[in-house]
Amino acid sequence: MRYLITLLFALATLTGCSQDSSNEPPPTISDNSKMYFPTNSTAWETQNISSLNWNTNALSDLKIFLQNKNSKSFMILVNGRIVVEEYFNGHSATTPWYWASAGKTLTATLTGIAQQEGLLNINNKVSQYLGTGWTSEPLDKENLITCKHLLTMTSGLDDATDAVDPASLLYKADAGTRWAYHNVYVKLQEVIANASKKTWVEYFNSKLRDKIGMDGTWLTIGNNEVYSSTTRSMARFGLLALNKGNWNGLQIVNEAYFNEATSTSQNINLSYGYLWWLNGKTSYHLPQSQLQFNGSLIPSAPSDMYMALGKNDQKIYVIPNRKMVVIRMGESADNVNMALSTFDNELWQKINALNN
C-alpha cells in the first residue's frame, strides 16, 4: 500500500510549554487532577512539568532528539493541560501541517456520529449507500462488503493500488477473510455524504470540527482526502479520544462506539480497531504485508495506548491510564515512509525517561 504524501526551537516557557501568543491572561488552574478542556479561544491551561514529579533533565534530551528527527511540533497533554509544547525547524503554533493517515481516525469518528444519528449502520453493505457497481467485483462479492469492513481494513479488495475508482477496486478475497491496509476506507466519506445529504466537509465541520474548536481543512492529494491543521487542533482531537468521544460533557460520538473503535475489530490483525492502531496486543500486521508479527506494536510504550498514525511520522498517541495525549508532526524521522517505524519505540524511550 502506497502512502500519501523547516533549525529553530520555539521559545519555551518555564513550564516547558510555549507561551500563548494572544493577549489573554492565562486561566487560573484550580485542580490539575480534573480533566480540562480548552475553550474555543487561543487560551489553553498549562501545567509545570515539575508538578508531575517528572525528570526535567530528560526534557532537554527529548527536545534534541525530536529536532534531530525532523520534527515540526510536539505536545504532551496530561488531564487536558499542556505540559510540553515545542516547535522546530521554522514551524509555529499557527502553521498547519497534514495528518496523513492519522486522519483516518477522523473518518472513523464521523462514521460513529452518523450511525448514532440513524443515518447509517456500519453492519449494512456499502452498496446500500453508494449503489451497486462501486467496485468491479461480481455483485455477490461486492454485496459482502459492509461499512464495518471498510473501518477494519477487511474489505477483501485488492490493495495493490491506492485508486478507489470502480475499475481499480478488484476482488482479492471475500470480505472479512483478509486484512490489508487499503485506501478504500475513503468510501466511508461518500457513504456519510450520501446518507446525510451534505458534503463530507459540511458534515465533518458541523458535527466534529466546530464542536471541539478545531481549525483545519481537507485537502485532495492524489486519491486521498487529507486533513491539515495546527498542532493544537490535532491535540484537541486527541483529547476527545482520551475522553472516549466526550468533550466537556458533550458526547460527540457515543462511548460504546468509541470503545469498539479502539478495541480489536477482527481476528486477523489484533492491533487494529476502526482505523485506530492498538498497542499491547500479542501480534500485529503492517501495511503492504500479509505477515503476522508477534508482540506489541511499540514495546516501550504503554500497553493500553491507541494511536492515529500517518505517513512521515504524524502521530496521535492516547494513553488512558496516564490521562495523556502525545502529538508529533513533521517530516519522516528516519526517511521511512511508514506510519509505524523504529522512531515510535525510540520516542517512547525518551518520553518514559521523563517519568524516571
Rank of each mutant, 00 (worst) to 15 (best):
I221M: 13
I221L: 11
I221D: 14
G222W: 13
G222V: 06
N223H: 12
N224R: 13
E225R: 13
E225K: 14
V226L: 13
V226N: 02
Y227M: 05
Y227I: 03
Y227T: 00
S228W: 10
S228V: 11
S229N: 02
S229R: 03
T230E: 01
T231L: 00
T231V: 04
T231S: 07
T231P: 03
R232V: 04
R232F: 09
R232G: 02
A235P: 01
R236S: 06
R236P: 01
F237G: 07
G238H: 03
G238R: 04
L240R: 01
L240N: 05
L242Y: 05
L242F: 06
N243S: 06
N243E: 15
N243I: 07
K244C: 05
K244T: 09
K244R: 14
G245H: 10
G245I: 15
G245K: 07
N246F: 13
N246H: 06
N246A: 08
N246W: 13
N248T: 03
L250Y: 08
L250P: 01
Q251Y: 05
I252A: 00
I252L: 10
V253R: 05
N254D: 15
E255M: 07
E255W: 06
A256S: 11
A256Q: 14
Y257N: 04
F258L: 12
F258I: 15
F258M: 15
N259K: 15
N259E: 14
N259G: 06
T262W: 07
T262E: 09
S263Q: 07
S265A: 15
S265P: 09
Q266L: 10
Q266G: 03
N267H: 15
N269S: 13
L270F: 09
S271W: 13
